[in-house]
């Protein structure tokens, strides 16, 4: 026998003296608001925002490296060696993270694959750099700056900052688009450089910064390494980006530092504040989530 509150909610039997607009006392009793709502707290959000800060720092480091190459302040050979050094350090980190998860054979196969593809990319970039240098050489510099700025903005917007899915083997479409935008930006920028070695160095660096580094960052974010690493890493990167931008333009540095600060500290604060407007409504009308084992 259904209890009284349920008996109001039947359609097959009609109460004779009850109009159709009768509102039973059980009306909206099954409504639940903010049911499984877990409020964010400030510091974990700051930690999550580190991924964004790191990405912005990478873009600024890349741009200042480009300016130095263009103005001949930086020897492209040094950049090539730095890239190789970065790659080896990054790969070491990757290996350390891999040690916990995968079997020995699997890791070995991965290593061979990584070696093969890195040699391939190295050679391909080397042979393509004369082509890349002249690819957009006929386009005026103004267009190149505008285009690369747009592409970098696109890259920052679409990048994958999440640290949720631990074994996300397949890249999401947006993160692939983001990587492509950044590589295209560096290709168009490369046409402003004077010689082939510089082009090669720049593109190699962009592959490091925009294709490999985000994967490592994602990996660091989802792995259970202590947050100290994350914080230290972010701090190093953003300081480095500010230091390398400072000699080029003071105004840009100030604006950039303000953005960094805003993204890392203010934006999480705004999100925490905005949570008081949260009003999640749940009830029997929601689409059920099927549990299939």
């Amino acid at each position: 026998m259904p209890d009284d509150s349920e008996s109001h909610k039947i359609l097959w039997k009609r109460h004779e003296n009850r109009p159709d607009n009768y509102v039973s006392p059980s009306f909206l009793k099954s409504l639940r608001t903010n049911d499984n709502f877990r409020p964010y707290t400030y510091w974990p959000l700051v930690l999550l925002a580190c991924a964004l800060t790191q990405h912005l720092a990478t873009i600024f480091i890349f741009v200042s490296v480009f300016v130095r190459l263009k103005e001949n302040y930086l020897n492209p050979r040094i950049l090539v060696w730095t890239s190789v050094g970065c790659f080896l350090t990054g790969y070491l980190f990757w290996e350390l993270l891999d040690r916990t998860g995968l079997s020995h054979e699997h890791r070995r196969a991965n290593r061979v694959k990584a070696l093969k593809s890195s040699i391939l990319i190295f050679l391909a970039l080397m042979s393509l750099s004369p082509v890349l240098r002249t690819l957009t050489a006929a386009t005026s510099s103004d267009s190149i700056w505008a285009l690369s700025a747009t592409l970098f903005a696109l890259n920052a917007l679409l990048a994958d900052y999440s640290s949720l899915s631990p074994f996300n083997a397949v890249n999401r479409l947006t993160s692939v688009l983001s990587m492509n935008a950044a590589i295209s930006a560096s290709v168009v920028l490369a046409s402003r450089l004077a010689n082939d070695v510089a082009v090669f160095a720049l593109i190699l660096f962009s592959v490091q910064a925009f294709a490999l580094f985000p994967r490592l960052r994602h990996r660091l974010g989802v792995s259970s390494c202590p947050p100290v690493f994350q914080v230290a890493f972010t701090l190093i990167l953003s300081c480095l980006s500010i230091i390398v931008t400072m000699p080029l333009s003071r105004t840009v540095t100030w604006i950039y530092s303000a953005v960094q600060f805003g993204v890392t500290f203010l934006a999480p604060a705004v999100l925490v504040w905005a949570q008081k407007f949260k009003n999640e409504i749940r009830g029997p009308w929601d689409v059920a989530i099927p549990k299939v084992n």
């Binding site: 909610k9 039947i10 359609l11 029997p284 009308w285 059920a288 989530i289 099927p290 549990k291 299939v292």
Partner: peptide, 24 residues
Amino acid sequence: STRVGGVPEILPEDMISFANPNAD
């Protein structure tokens, strides 16, 4: 039927068997 939305209202309990929306 699965026990969703307005379905529990339309028939008396002895004409229908309800299930929660999971396979088991």
